[in-house]
């Protein structure tokens, strides 16, 4: 036993190191895709129907926030369209109760960061650059890390400002 003590110690340290690496890897993984109160399908709306992003996310080019559409906008079509589908029924339920829909946020910035959709859209950054190909996402998934280094690399490559207060508040 005593003979192997150093070996055991070495193995212990290597084990710890591996554990840290695995955890770090886990922590970096960003592909969260929470379940939504209504299983809204981007593939159908943006893909099959070919709606522009701005059809629903109306303020993306004029406000810092892209915003989810108001229920009334959904109801403009879904008064008649596809009313038999269970998810649309849910939507109508919200409308009838005049109740706002609490969507789960997928792209979430930390408290200390500001992000202005308008500026990025006006700078010609395509929606898919950050949000991925939504036509292919049955459930919206976070496809980018949204970590600071990711933002900064892009800012640097596009000569966008890298003043801290550009993004921090």
């Amino acid at each position: 036993m005593k003979r192997y003590l150093p070996l055991i110690l070495v193995a212990y340290f290597i084990g710890c190191l591996l554990l840290i690496l695995v955890l770090a890897r886990q922590w970096q993984d960003t592909g969260q895709a929470p379940e939504q109160p209504i299983a809204f399908s981007h593939p159908i709306h943006a893909g099959n129907l070919g709606l522009e992003c701005t059809y629903c996310h109306q303020t993306v080019a004029r406000s810092p926030q892209a915003t989810v559409p108001p229920v009334s906008l959904c109801m403009e079509c879904h008064k008649n369209a596809a009313i038999d589908r269970p998810e649309v029924q849910k939507l109508r339920g919200f409308w009838e109760r005049q109740e706002p829909i609490h969507w789960q946020r997928v792209y979430q910035l930390p408290w200390h960061a500001v992000f202005n959709h308008k500026r990025h859209i006006k700078a010609g950054v395509d929606c898919s650059f950050c949000h991925g190909e939504l036509k292919a996402q049955a459930r919206v998934r976070q496809v980018r890390s949204l970590m600071m280094g990711w933002c900064v690399s892009c800012h640097r490559s596009r000569n966008a400002p890298t003043d801290c207060w550009t993004c921090h508040k």
Partner: peptide
């Protein structure tokens, strides 16, 4: 650990 200059994802 932010006081130590180590390469980090924040590029800081």
């Amino acid at each position: 650990y932010w006081l130590f200059p180590y390469p980090n994802q924040r590029l800081l």
